[in-house]
Structures are given as structure tokens and as C-alpha cells.
Design a protein around this nucleic acid. Structure first.
Lengths: 178, 178
DNA sequence: AGTAACATGTAACGCGTTACATGATTTG
DNA sequence: CAAATCATGTAACGCGTTACATGTTACT
């Protein structure tokens, strides 16, 4: 499942500009899917070239604003992609790698890593709380992913706060004898 | 943080073959870092070329078994990489994308997605339980990542079982009018 | 005898990330 | 007037994934 499908998915709800799509990704999506402009714009260009979306250049105010609208063909592609994608949930955690090797880290570094990660999760939870305030506008599926994020991130944060501080770091010398 | 650093990290504990490194990744690492042979062998070759590991061709039994051992220089590189890496925890969930668009999925597909994901998490938890049985051999940091995985995966599984079945799928017709 | 596990590697491909490059409009 | 936000795109690079290709040893 690539960025194209995700763009198609959000466009199935309403027409948007590439910029708005990115904002959407940063909202309810932020805890399970990230995409930058460098992925979104090329994806949109390709969707337009295959007839999955129609582009409408809006000259309302600013110079070159483009609104993308999904076509019936795009809806077919979306349905096919959603039918074919096998459910996966991949985690790539440099945080856990760092903790795995905690015994090789200076104590202050380990402490900083723990504090930094907790801060990131707190921020994400704050963002999700903001999405929750608009909960009435969400579909049940979207509410599911929101609750999932809050539950799982909350569990991660609680576990880290409870057990992180008792993980021992490396002993004094940064470069131990071999 | 790339596969090279991870290989260096596990080699800091004891010398291993590429095959054993992959097994290690499939054990305690499996819930937060994946790497296939296609990543590991080239990484090992590069580590050898930069003097971070020493290769010892063991001709004990089979044809070409290679044991990699970390060098003092490799330990320096590892320490530098662990000091520089900023803690991150990235999730890429096609499962949540599918749930986000649940209203576009046929009911039986949604049901299958939910069941499939639950099965995968159950399997991972089984694998982690096997690692836990050797818990005495683990460092505190490794036990932290193990407990983290069990807690967070458990929370994900519980949430999905509790709220997944009540998410409504698309209405009968697979291709709704536009 | 057959299968699973052990063991190593290469090459092509796809994909996302990052940095670069530009400019208008709104808000403080 | 400065800064933040809105708005679009390109190009290079790095990285991992997948498929391909091969052969041995241990177990049943």
C-alpha cells in the first residue's frame, strides 16, 4: 500500500489540494502513516496521469492552487487496492534499539533518550486529543484508529515511564577495555 | 540507524555468522526491527571492509561458514552510532489504513482483516513468550524491550478485539453510486 | 529418500526521505 | 515589516525488499 492509495482514500471523502492532503496525514494519520510533499506531489501527478483523479486549477486568489477530485475510475482503483492489501503493522523503533543496547550507553544519554521519546509520545497524544475534539465528523473506522492510537501510545508511554528509569546504563568509562 | 549498526550491536555480545544474526533479529527484535539476508550480508561485507569486524572462515564442517567478530574500532563506531541516533518510533500500519477506510470495505473483507491482524499479533506474542523463557540470559535493556513489546502488542490486540467487531463496513453494494 | 534447517550471496527494483528551489498571502 | 502559513514541485540519494541462485547437513 503506497502513498497513491492513501491520497486516493482521503480524496474519496472530499476534493483537496496536495497541501490539504498533507495536513490530513498530519492529523488523524500521524501515528501510523507519514508522507511528505516529496511523496505526495509525485503520487498525485501519477494518479492524474492514470485518470484516477481530475485536476482543477483554481485561480481564486493565489497563483497556482490545484484541487484534486477522485474519478469513478479512481474509486475502482481504490477499492481494488483496499481489497488486495494484506493487513500489516510494521514498527521500526530506533528507541527500542537504543534501549536494547542500554548497557552500552552513558547514563545521561540513556536518560535523555527516555525523556525525548516520552516527550514525542506526549505530543502525538496531544495532537490526537485535538482530532478527538472533532470526533463527530469522523467515520467509525476513523474513530477506531484514533482510539487505537490513544490506547497503544498510552500503553507505550506508561510502560516506558514505569520501567525505563530502572534500566541500568553503562558503567562510568565510555570506552571499556575489550 | 541502519542494519550495519544493528549487526555491530549484536556482534558486540558475541561473534556470530550472518545466519545467526538473522535468527537473533527474528527473536527479541522481531517486534521493532526487521532485516532480511539481502540487508544483512551486504552490511556485514561493508563492516568488514571498514575494519569494524573481522571475518573468520570456519571450515569445521560445512563449506563456507563465516564467523564475524567485532573489533575495537567497531566498538568505537557502535558507540558513536548509538550516541548520534535520535530516538524514534515509527509505525507504518496498513492495518490501520484499512480500518480508517472501513466504510469502503465489504463486510467479509473487514472481518478477515481484523482476524488476520489479531492472528499475527498472537503469533508475535507467542514468539516473545519463547524469548521470555530465556529471560535470565538477557540484559535489563533487552528485558525492557521484551516487556515493552508484550505490553504494547497486548494493548493493540485487546483494543482490536474489543472495538474492531463494532466498526461498520460498507453497505451491500461493492460499487456505490457516485 | 525427502524435508527442514543451515549457510551465503547478488542484482534489480521500488519507495520514501531529504534537500533544494520558489513565491504569495495572512497574521501579528 | 517580519514571520508563519499556504502552496507546488524536482532531483539525488539511501535504503530496504524481493527474487534469484546454490549447496550442505541433520533429522524423520
Amino acid at each position: 500500500m503506497d502513498v497513491r492509495t492513501l491520497c486516493l482514500g482521503v480524496l474519496a471523502e472530499r476534493p483537496m489540494t496536495g497541501y490539504e492532503i498533507k495536513k490530513t496525514f498530519e492529523g488523524a494519520f500521524r501515528h501510523f502513516f507519514l508522507a511528505g510533499f516529496g511523496s505526495i506531489y509525485p503520487a498525485l501527478a501519477e494518479l492524474a496521469s492514470t485518470g484516477s483523479v481530475r485536476v482543477e486549477s483554481v485561480e481564486d486568489k493565489r497563483h497556482g492552487k490545484k484541487v484534486y477530485r477522485i474519478t469513478p475510475r479512481g474509486r475502482d482503483h481504490l477499492a481494488a487496492a483496499l481489497a488486495a492489501a494484506r493487513p500489516q503493522h510494521k514498527v521500526r523503533s530506533e528507541f527500542l534499539v537504543l534501549l536494547y543496547f542500554a548497557h552500552l550507553l552513558p547514563p545521561e544519554r540513556l536518560h535523555a533518550v527516555l525523556a525525548d521519546m516520552a516527550r514525542q509520545w506526549e505530543r502525538t497524544l496531544t495532537d490526537l486529543a485535538a482530532v478527538e475534539r472533532r470526533s463527530a465528523e469522523l467515520t467509525p473506522g476513523q474513530r477506531f484508529t484514533l482510539g487505537f492510537g490513544q490506547t497503544v501510545l498510552g500503553a507505550a508511554l506508561d510502560y516506558t515511564r514505569a520501567h525505563g528509569p530502572s534500566v541500568p546504563a553503562a558503567a562510568a568509562a565510555p570506552r571499556a577495555a575489550e
